[in-house]
């Protein structure tokens, strides 16, 4: 398989970095998921080159690595846009507005059959339950969390990202890009959280118990 034109190569010392991940585990093969996340942090997808690098470092066959990689939905078989937008359409989110958000967003960004916008900024896809049903409908951008999404709010967020403005998710830090977040999942970037990541839904019962519920 030849890599698509928009794929970048891995750095020359990728084996070294992959080895530091493998060294974290007594049983080195356990490192395979974080290693694949690291590959995505460079390439935005799991390329044949990335699969070979993981196989080399772990001393297993590329077919084994590929077998693992294709099992998990977060590993992409094609390069991802700068930002990955996932719209949850599992029952509750879908019916509470996720279906409408997804349909609208696809048209708004004129995405192709792969979900890519023509400018390469966005890849749009539907995702399954994000374990945040009290905040339905849920959208993730580079796996950062957005709640109670509507089509019109989605337009604003997308416009801000296009303009290079800082976009804050509803809990957590900042939307930075698909590849950047993959570094976190690889365990290669440890940052100190500076703000609480607590929202109204998480505090709903506590506020009622304290007699402070909003009506």
């Amino acid at each position: 398989m030849t890599p698509p034109a928009n794929s970048v190569s891995l750095p020359n010392d990728i084996d070294k970095e992959l080895t530091t991940i493998a060294d974290r585990y007594t049983h080195r093969r356990s490192a395979i998921l974080p290693m694949l996340h690291l590959v995505q942090s460079y390439q935005g997808w799991v390329s044949p080159e990335g699969i070979e690098a993981c196989a080399r470092v772990l001393g297993i066959s590329p077919a084994e690595v590929s077998g693992v990689s294709t099992f998990y939905t977060m590993y992409r078989r094609r390069p991802c846009g700068k930002h990955l937008i996932g719209v949850c359409t599992t029952s509750l989110c879908g019916m509470l507005g996720g279906d409408a958000v997804l349909q609208d967003l696809r048209e708004y960004l004129s995405v192709d059959e792969n979900g890519d916008s023509p400018d390469g900024m966005f890849t749009v896809e539907h995702i399954e339950c994000q374990a945040a049903c009290s905040q339905a409908p849920v959208v993730t951008i580079d796996w950062e969390f957005f709640q109670y999404m509507t089509p019109w709010r989605m337009h604003e967020v997308v416009a801000d990202l296009r303009d290079g403005k800082e976009v804050k998710p509803d809990r957590g830090s900042t939307v930075r890009g698909f590849r950047e977040v993959e570094k976190v999942l690889a365990g290669m970037e440890l940052t100190e959280p500076t703000q609480p990541a607590v929202d109204d839904a998480m505090l709903a019962g506590l506020m009622v118990a304290k007699g402070k519920a909003k009506s």
Binding site: T26, L33, H37, Y72, M74, G86, I127, Q130, A131, T140, W143, E144, F145, P169, R171, G172, S173, V181, V184, L185, G187, L190, T191, E192, P193, A197
Partner: peptide, 23 residues
């Protein structure tokens, strides 16, 4: 002597916070 916390990959914010707490 060893414990693992397996967090679903789709919530990097949880990975960040729990990793930092462990540190």
């Amino acid at each position: 002597k060893e414990a693992f916390i397996y967090i679903r990959g789709e919530v990097p914010e949880a990975v960040r916070r729990v990793s930092w707490a462990v540190k």
